[in-house]
Amino acid sequence: MTTPSQDQIKTLEQSRQRLAHLTRSLASLITSLNQSDPLPTWSSLQSQATIISRNLGSVSEHLSENHELLTSLVAFPGPEYPGRTQANILEQLLRTKLDPRVDDWVARGRKAGTSALEDRGSLSERDLADLWDWAPVAANEDARRRNWGGNFTLEERESGIQNVVTGLKRQLEDDDDDDEDEDEEDDDQGEEDEMEIVGARKSGTGPGLEFDIAAVASQDQTPVAPVVPLGEILRYMTTGAPPGQR
């Protein structure tokens, strides 16, 4: 029986820090749940879940790495502890028995883990381990081969994106190749002389229609801001006074 060494204290300190992170991330999830109605955005929920999971993982990793030390460390109340008045807190802190729900969870895992090996035709323990070694890497590789963003599918790109009817007036950019020059030519051909009359007019009162004006950037000309202010133009139109002179 010895008191914990400095190294061992350091390990405990690491446990403390990791647990502190975990506690904090759980607290933040609870706060954000309480503050939003009905739920936080799914993306924020997901990122919080990821953080908790990561913190949980780091606690778990730490515990198994220092399994040896932690199983050999025994805690007990010192003489300063007010054992008489605060016995139940102590009990809570030193409890080693699992919470009934966790116990149940462990039991279910045990049952599933046992039956998985018992059945004939299922993978052996070793095969399973191999599979689990291989699978994450393989899945990752496969995922990397795909383009998860982008405006065109692989199929569309193979048959040529200029053939894709998007119905959009703006040009969709294709991340993969840069043949924008061709695209612009295609665009010019499609232009008609007649203006298309779309939509309906809004009647002044009552149920009427409204025209939808989408702010669409023109693609064939680079924007140039007028250099003569409107007021100067109007002045010229009114009196013939050339712009820039007053």
Partner: peptide
């Protein structure tokens, strides 16, 4: 809550060889 109830350093630990 714990700070109120238990004084600092009121828990001892020892390494045993189980």
């Amino acid at each position: 809550f714990l700070k109120q109830t238990a004084p600092l350093g009121s828990l001892d630990a020892e390494v045993v060889h189980p």
